[in-house]
């Protein structure tokens, strides 16, 4: 192959790659929503419940990774943002679950105490 032809192929390939990267929009809105989910999990008691805290940390890490990828790999950034949202929502739910479980145990203890009278 001649040098000109090789150059043309390289340029075309680079253009194609650039086209693919730019064809996926940056997940800015989704990222903001994920950040809000993380904030709700933090405020909802996740840091004080071990299981919830673990998923909250994963959400925060995924959120940072996705932020770093926006612009370079919007598709992966979007899926990582989705992971961050799923982790954050799960963290908040686990915190609520622990609280509800505590309330149920307390209610059972109160009932047992009253029954023993």
């Amino acid at each position: 192959m001649k040098p000109k032809a090789v150059f043309a192929v390289v340029v075309a390939s680079a253009g194609l790659v650039a086209a693919c990267a730019s064809s996926f929009p940056p997940p800015n809105d989704e990222w903001a929503a994920a950040q809000a989910d993380v904030g709700r999990a933090q405020a909802g008691g996740a840091p004080s419940v071990p299981d919830a805290r673990l998923h909250l940390q994963l959400a925060e890490e995924d959120l940072q990774k996705s932020k770093a990828l926006i612009g370079d790999d919007n598709h992966r950034a979007a899926t990582l943002t989705g992971v961050a949202r799923a982790e954050a929502v799960l963290a908040l739910s686990l915190a609520k679950e622990a609280e509800a479980d505590g309330q149920a145990r307390q209610a059972q203890a109160d009932l047992a105490k009253a029954s023993a009278k």
């Binding site: 799960l90 739910s93 679950e97 149920a104």
Partner: peptide
């Protein structure tokens, strides 16, 4: 990533159900 999302949603369903059961 999508497998993790699927897993977390399954865990979420169980967690929400557990919360409702406790309530």
């Amino acid at each position: 990533d999508m497998a993790i999302i699927a897993d977390r949603k399954a865990l979420l369903a169980r967690s929400v159900a557990n919360t409702m059961k406790s309530q």
